[in-house]
Amino acid sequence: MTRQEFLAGLDDAVSLPVGTLQGSEQLEDLENWDSMAMVSFIALADSHNGKQLSVKQIGQCKTVAELLQLAQVEE
């Protein structure tokens, strides 16, 4: 999965039009970054490389870029 595809998946997870998220966004500013979106992110990361993330690690992320880093999505 490319970075663009991963971001498109995250757009969908937080109910934004595809192409909205770029990486620098603060998670606390995303209205729909909730438990359902977190589940979608876990699924995206699993589909990307089979990496299973800990919920604690996800909770420590402050930005979209940190989520991408955690999921090991290449720049």
């Binding site: 438990s35 589940v39 876990i42 919920v55 996800i58």
Partner: peptide, 24 residues
């Protein structure tokens, strides 16, 4: 944080943790 309300007498589910368990 998501605006849900409950007490210790109610059902609580951490959906993200359950999903992570399920994947494994």
């Amino acid at each position: 944080d998501s605006g849900n309300v409950r007490s210790l007498d109610n059902l609580y589910m951490n959906g993200a943790e359950i999903f992570t368990f399920t994947l494994q």
